[in-house]
């Protein structure tokens, strides 16, 4: 029992102390937490429910824009804002936090409602059709955002400058924000997977028709699953806009080719359909990527490509799947080491 508390303790201390121990990489650590959130939320649909969505990035981008626009419009007129570079130095801590909190709250509402509406429409599709449709959603969202002048269109939108002098270092602020987000997502999801919701979406993955025949309201559960993804992605997007400082429609907000694909990769790498898989996958992927960028300069994309191929070929079930097959005891599976003969009780 005590052993267990020590492990938790070590983990909590590490998570809380990481940016203090390594202040130089606190933004990277914040990104790591974001990646974990990405992988966890993708896995709700992709892993637990068997619906491969490439459109989750939509909620991330919408959350980012909604938050930024509210932060902008609450305290400034558009012209003022444009000439003040995200109100460089003109915004104090209270205003910034008020804007951020209201912005995030609004983005949650918008994203969840959007997920419910989109879900009702396209969650009737299955398999490849669903995947392709969601892929289109992401691309369409980027194009639409690039055409709306109110949110900066193709010229992008600068988010309010973080008031360092009031709120301390931005890196710490966002690290702890993303840490809490990832931890809450993890806890909420593991709680959900243990209950009826988890069983229902697993049933949908295993055989949707049978699940429906058993009386499960599949469409309701599917939409719910997407709304939960949207909830966390709205919170992730809203803060990410502030962390990056500049929102470009197709490359920061609706970045399907990077974040959109990575969230799938990370979940698969770690082992989809498990709760720790996405966490481990995100950590390994993010670390490898940063290392490639540092040590294999110029070849980082080739190395990343090689890594992805290696993942698919050698770990089709992900790291968790590999561990489960190789060392099942480690994951708490009971293995009977007795030979079949010795099992015969005389």
């Amino acid at each position: 029992m005590i052993h267990r508390y020590i492990k938790w303790g070590v983990l909590i201390v590490l998570a809380l102390g990481a940016p203090v121990l390594m202040p130089a990489i606190k933004t990277q650590l914040a990104m790591l937490m974001l990646m974990i959130t990405f992988a966890l939320t993708w896995d709700i649909m992709g892993g637990q429910m068997g619906y491969n969505s490439f459109g989750n990035i939509v909620f991330f981008g919408v959350g980012m824009y909604v938050t930024a626009v509210i932060q902008r419009d609450m305290f400034f007129t558009a012209e003022e804002y444009e000439t003040m570079a995200g109100a460089l130095g003109a915004i104090d801590g209270t205003d910034y936090l008020t804007g951020l909190v209201i912005g995030l709250a609004a983005s949650i509402v918008v994203c969840v409602v959007l997920a419910a509406i989109l879900g009702a429409g396209i969650l009737k599709l299955r398999g490849h059709y669903f995947a392709i449709c969601t892929l289109g959603l992401g691309i369409a969202a980027a194009e639409i955002a690039g055409g709306i002048d109110y949110i900066g269109a193709g010229s992008g939108l600068v988010t309010p400058t973080f008031p360092n002098e009031y709120l301390g270092d931005r890196g710490y602020f966002f690290y702890y924000y993303f840490l809490v987000l990832a931890v809450v997502a993890f806890l909420v999801l593991s709680w959900l997977y243990r209950g009826q919701f988890g069983l229902a979406i697993n049933a949908i993955r295993d055989d949707e028709d049978k699940a429906e025949a058993m009386g499960i309201h599949t469409t309701r559960y599917k939409t719910m699953a997407w709304c939960i993804s949207a909830f966390f992605l709205a919170l992730a997007g809203g803060a990410m806009g502030n962390l990056v400082g500049f929102i470009d429609p197709s490359e920061v907000a609706f970045a399907g080719a990077t974040y959109g694909v990575w969230m799938v990769l990370m979940a698969i790498l770690g082992g989809k359909g498990t709760i720790w898989g996405p966490v481990i996958g995100a950590a390994v992927f993010h670390i490898m990527q940063e290392l490639f960028w540092t040590y294999l300069f110029g070849w980082q994309r080739v190395a990343l490509g090689a890594l992805i191929i290696a993942i698919v070929v050698f770990f089709p079930e992900g790291i968790m799947g590999f561990v489960r097959a190789r060392w099942p005891e480690l994951l708490g599976h009971k293995v009977d080491h007795q030979t079949p003969e010795s099992r015969i009780v005389p």
Binding site: R4, K7, W8, V10, L11, L14, A18, L21, M22, A24, I25, Q28, L32, S190, I275, W276, V279, I280, A283, V284, I287, E290, L291, T294, L330, L331, G332, H333
Partner: peptide, 26 residues
């Protein structure tokens, strides 16, 4: 129980992350 076991792996990942990313620093 399953979750508990996995904690073994996590500090290791953190350690690798820390050492390799912080290495080029100086």
């Amino acid at each position: 129980m399953k979750i508990m076991r996995m904690f073994k792996a996590l500090p290791m990942i953190w350690a690798v992350f820390a050492v390799m990313l912080a290495a080029p620093l100086p």
